[in-house]
Design a protein around this nucleic acid. Structure first.
Lengths: 347, 347
DNA sequence: CGCCCTGATGTAAACGATTACATTTTTGCC
DNA sequence: GGCAAAAATGTAATCGTTTACATCAGGGCG
């Protein structure tokens, strides 16, 4: 593969001149520049980004470390991240770290020298310290518990969103409202539970521990818990699932058991994934602007990168909004619009 | 940020020894190694991957260049790619190239020196030559037209899948079958059209040009075309949409126009995205093992990387299978299973 | 004791670029 | 034409590693 030296030799100039052509190139004579460009083209030369970033100390790449890559949430998140990063001239290096702090640390070390900063999402509370990551590397935490003020972070308004949707269920007349909780140890899950409790408390409704059921953010989990709820002597009349997958699972279960939704059982979820509006009945949920979340995280990170010295720690919280559809017995709002999934453009 | 030299100095050894500890480390005395590791830990040293790959000429990273990142298809594709890459010790550098050959070339040049090979998906036929990419960089084309035998490629059996699903429509009694075509110039779209025509021909059905309608792979497009079809004097009784998004759009339109599906109009799509089984009626489609597609592409690419010299060009085609649900008037098969979306584990 | 061998460690040259600084060429002006 | 300033180009150090090769310290042995 051709290097800058090859180009220099062929064009009878020094490497410095070639380098200048491929960068600012203001001081190079037009004729020389043209000749160099021609030679570069015939040699199929492309600058070696690795070598370049070694000396410039900039990679123009952001590391993105997520707990998973699959599903609507991450799809949209990555989309938002990429859009913003690209607009600012950055590439993204995506990786997935399964469980555990050591995994994360290892992944972060592997990123050393490849990225200018990192976006890190590790929603499990116990992955709490990142002592051994290379110092001095800007990091933004996504949807993660706030660990003091070591890092910037961007999260969503879990508490507020959950509280509002539960308040809605109360407003349409329910008092026995169950919750299907998210995974144990998950930050978002804990916050949504807090929101649920706060809404009940605000309405003066007594907390009933038997209505707080452990879920795991999966559809299957929601399905199972729905069964448990129907087995209770004193059944709830509404259920709030900490995410849409579980709400969908619960809906399947209720249908299968012949429980009419929302007449006998109201349901609401969280995230407002596209599927919600296609369910029968369409699912009430809490809308999260996931792509914006990613975009905002990139912005914060870039600020950290560009102003390393005088960058004050940020802790942002993306707003949510509740979306009422038939499953909660609210007004039968929007119909599935003819256009929706506007960028599934290929295949 | 600490470098290998800092560690060497602090541990009173040479950089070579430190380097050895972080690599094979067989010939280093145990006591020395331990001391070096301690120093490295306190200094929070992590090897600079960029510098390392400059000299080793290996980055352990695969470039992934896709036309988009949003939607189920890409989500699953990236998932499959990441899974396999990671298993083999590779990271992935994801990027998105909008339209146009120059965009792609620019993106590929930017990858020079950052990746050991590239996965490239550019389903638009006209992006046909990649003359100016850095020579010698292994590339695998995904779902792209075969350009001679310059590159390895992995595609899906568009032709076969489309042919089978249309044959199914014929088998259940339809003879006037419309197609909503995919985007103009798109490789997958062209292949699916070929499959549609082949199925008709095999059944001895006369090709009717008014039943071949141009779509664009979007839900909205499907919605529009469905309206056009109903406006025909001689309406079809079934419609094959070249992807599920369009099928869903068409379904919405038919419902809105009061056309009963499948009694008055049968529908089938392509891709079998998860939404299909949730539609009312559930949508027949052609199942594509997208994650496997990504996985296989990585395998082919890694082979190309590891056996640069004696690597023969490969051209693989992932199989598809038709999935019959109610929308096509076939047997009312599977119900939405309680578990489905098994890895939407977080949020 | 001197020799060779072995195993541990050090030295220094790459890798492919950027860039401060030095040097050469061109240009403008008298 | 000659000279200074400006413009163009070259030289060489540098970024943080790896690794071939050199060196060095001991140990075994004749």
């Amino acid at each position: 593969m051709a290097t800058i030296k090859d180009v220099a030799r062929e064009a009878s100039v020094s490497v410095a001149t070639v380098s200048r052509v491929f960068n600012g190139a203001t001081v190079v004579r037009e004729e020389t520049a043209r000749r160099i460009r021609e030679v570069a083209a015939t040699l199929r030369y492309a600058p070696h980004s690795g070598a370049r970033s070694l000396i410039t100390n900039r990679t123009n790449t952001l590391g993105v470390l997520l707990p998973d890559l699959y599903g609507e949430f991450f799809s949209e998140l990555i989309h938002g991240i990429d859009l913003t990063a690209r607009k600012e001239g950055y590439h993204i290096l995506v990786s997935r770290s399964w469980e555990g702090r050591s995994e994360i640390e290892e992944a972060m070390r592997a990123m050393r020298g490849r990225v200018d900063g990192m976006l890190l999402m590790s929603p499990d509370v116990h992955a709490d310290s990142m002592l051994n990551v290379p110092a001095n590397l800007p990091v933004v935490l996504l949807c993660s518990p706030s660990r003091g003020h070591e890092c910037d972070s961007v999260t969503i308004q879990n508490f507020q969103g959950a509280k509002e949707i539960v308040a809605h269920l109360i407003a349409v007349g329910h008092t026995r409202i169950a919750i299907i909780k998210g995974s144990l140890g998950n930050f978002d899950a804990a916050e949504r539970l807090r929101g649920y409790r706060a809404a009940l408390k605000d309405a003066g409704i007594q907390n009933d521990a038997t209505l707080e059921r452990q879920g795991d953010f999966t559809e299957k989990g929601g399905f199972t818990v729905a069964g448990e709820l129907m087995a209770l002597r004193n059944r709830p009349t509404a259920v709030f699932a900490a995410n849409d997958s579980m709400a969908i699972g619960a809906l399947s279960a209720f249908k299968q058991m012949g429980v009419r939704v929302p007449e006998e059982m109201a349901i609401a979820g969280f995230d407002d994934i596209p599927l919600c509006r296609y369910m029968d009945p369409p699912l009430s949920s809490v809308r999260v602007h996931i792509a914006d979340l990613g975009a905002r995280a990139v912005e914060v990170l870039l600020h950290g990168i560009r102003h390393k010295n005088d960058h004050v720690r940020r802790r942002e919280r993306m707003s949510t909004e509740i979306v009422i559809r038939r499953s909660s017995g609210g007004e039968p709002a929007e119909r599935p619009p003819p256009t929706l999934n506007n960028s599934m453009a290929s295949v």
